[in-house]
């Protein structure tokens, strides 16, 4: 049941004839998930830095 559906790795990358549609979509998905994760980490860090600066000022 679980077998590789393509003749070769090159055929998998080409995914004829729809590779141009499939791969960019997954790329975009990765970009969105990664981007949101990164944005969260940066926002968290920014908040901590802001509070630190406030503490130092006092």
């Amino acid at each position: 049941m679980l077998e590789f559906q393509f003749a070769s790795l090159a055929a998998f990358c080409e995914m004829a004839p729809h590779g141009v549609y499939v791969w960019p979509t997954y790329g975009l998905g990765l970009l969105v998930l990664g981007g949101l994760t990164l944005a969260n980490v940066r926002q968290h860090r920014r908040a901590i830095r802001m509070i630190q600066r406030n503490l130092e000022r006092e």
Binding site: N40, Q43, H44, I51
Partner: peptide, 9 residues
């Protein structure tokens, strides 16, 4: 993740 950052802020 986003909630934690907002809570902190």
């Amino acid at each position: 993740g986003s909630m934690r950052a907002i809570v902190l802020e």
